[in-house]
Structures are given as C-alpha cells and as structure tokens.
C-alpha cells in the first residue's frame, strides 16, 4: 500500500462544537490515511463522531484543529467557494436517503454535479451521466423518475451521481441504511465491483455485517480511533447467493 498515493490524510483532527455554554468534543484527535484504491469502512455507534468526521472528510465542515489533505490539497482555511469546488471535483457523496431530486429523471439526477462544473459541456455531461448509469446497471432506467424506481435502484442512481464527476473518493453515509438485507448486499456488491475498478471508497456505517464487505475498518468511539484494521474482505456477491431464496423479495 505504501507505494500508493494517499488520497486522504488526516492528522490529529479535532472538532469542537459549542452548544450553549458547553463545549462538545466530537473528534478528539483523529489521524489516519486513506490510499488510492482502498475500500474503507468507518464504524462507530451513534455519538462516536463518525458523522462529524464524514462532514469534515466531505468538506462540508471544517476541523477546529488538525490537518486534512484531500488529494494532496490542504482543506484548512479554504473559502466556502473553494470548498464547493473541491466537493464538486474530488468527492462523490452517497446518502442514506438517496437525496434524488423528485420528478427529475435518473439521467438528470446523475448529471447534476456536472451542471455546477463549467468545464463540462452539455454534451459531455450527458455522455458521462449515461456512462455512470451504465456502470451501476441502470442503462434501461435512465428516463425513469425516482418514484418509478425501487429503493435499491434509487441508491444506484445516487451512486452513479457520486461517480459522474470522477471523484478521488466516494463517501457513503449509511448508504444501505434504508435498504433491506438483500438490496443492501446488492449495493455492497456494486461498491465492491467499483472498488475492483480502482475506486477509492469510504463507507460510514454502524452495521458490522456491512463493514465486513470492506477491506479495512476504522472503529471510532467517543471521538477517538479505537481500532484501525485491515480485514479479510467477504464477497457481497457470495453473501447474496447464500441468502435464503424466500427472503421476502
């Protein structure tokens, strides 16, 4: 792994919130690296600081202290507009509740990040969105509206949207949280295949049976890293095949 380029580098990251007169230390000095091509899960229970960490990794929030480099760029003391550009060019988000625009076709939902990138022409945007949808297996659903798609399909559209800007890292926030087991496994299988194609993925979850599909797990507890370990990756496709057939589907 050492020869690989570090995509995310976090050094002694701290984040303190002031709630009323009280200070809440959500992150108390977190350091780790995520290298190119890694599939990392960030685990922790509610209140462990994983959401805060994700917000910082996603450049939606700034750390109180510590350093954060994404693709070699220091995020500290960047203006809001610069952070927007970083999010637009370097990061792909996948949310728990998909966050697709209603009454907007799958294709247009996927095109959305490129709309905010002036370097991408109308035609290129279209082509890249089509390609991203093909990548997640929704070639024949491009014209469908979100309400015409199943939860799993909606999440695939959201993943395509996260891939369309060719980000250095895909950040998934409980991306399987709203899905049943079978669909969760399907989505994890998709993430694994994306990983095999060389995508770097950070997957935030509190479910340990989801984190087993990743190759490395960072455990957070109370704002500290409890464990950071590489694990033997379980194949989601195999897990899917092992599911009982009558599994309410």
């Amino acid at each position: 792994m050492n020869e690989k380029q570090s995509i995310i580098k976090v050094e002694n990251l701290k984040r303190t919130f002031v709630v009323g007169s009280e200070e809440v230390h959500a992150l108390k000095g977190v350091s780790f690296d995520i290298c190119q091509g890694e599939f990392v899960s960030i685990m922790g229970s509610s209140g462990s600081g994983k959401s805060t960490l994700l917000n910082i990794l996603g450049c939606l929030d700034q750390p109180t202290s510590g350093e954060y480099f994404i693709d070699g760029i220091s995020v500290r003391e960047r203006s809001k507009n610069e952070l927007s550009d970083i999010r637009n060019r370097k990061i792909g988000f996948v949310f728990q509740s998909y966050n697709l625009l209603p009454r907007t076709s799958a294709l247009e939902n996927v095109e959305l990040p490129l709309v905010y990138n002036l370097d991408v022409s109308h035609r290129e945007r279209h082509e890249r969105a089509q390609h991203a949808l093909e990548l997640v297996g929704l070639k024949d659903r491009m014209g469908h509206m979100p309400n015409q798609l199943s939860g799993g399909q909606q999440q695939r559209v959201a993943i395509a949207r996260a891939l369309v800007n060719d980000p250095v890292i895909v950040l998934a926030d409980e991306a399987t949280g709203n899905l049943d087991t079978r669909t969760s496994y399907e989505i994890m299988s998709l993430f694994q295949s994306l990983h095999e194609q060389g995508k770097t993925i950070a997957f935030v979850t509190h479910e340990s049976d989801i984190s087993v599909f990743t190759s490395r797990t960072i455990f957070l507890r109370d704002g500290h890293i409890l464990r950071d370990e590489s694990v033997a990756t379980k194949s989601a496709a195999e897990a899917l095949a092992a599911l009982p057939v009558d599994n309410d589907y």
Binding site: G58, L60, K80, N81, S84, D85, R87, N88, R89, F93, F95, N99, L101, L112, P113, Y116, N117, R161, N165
Partner: peptide, 16 residues
C-alpha cells in the same frame, strides 16, 4: 431545504 443541501454537497456554490 433538502434539495438545497444536496446541491451544495455536490458542489453548488452559494451564489449558484
């Protein structure tokens, strides 16, 4: 609000 949040998270500037 949610749409605005999404647009921002995928890189829409405040001005946009």
């Amino acid at each position: 609000t949610k749409e605005i949040g999404l647009r921002m998270s995928i890189g829409a500037k405040n001005s946009a």
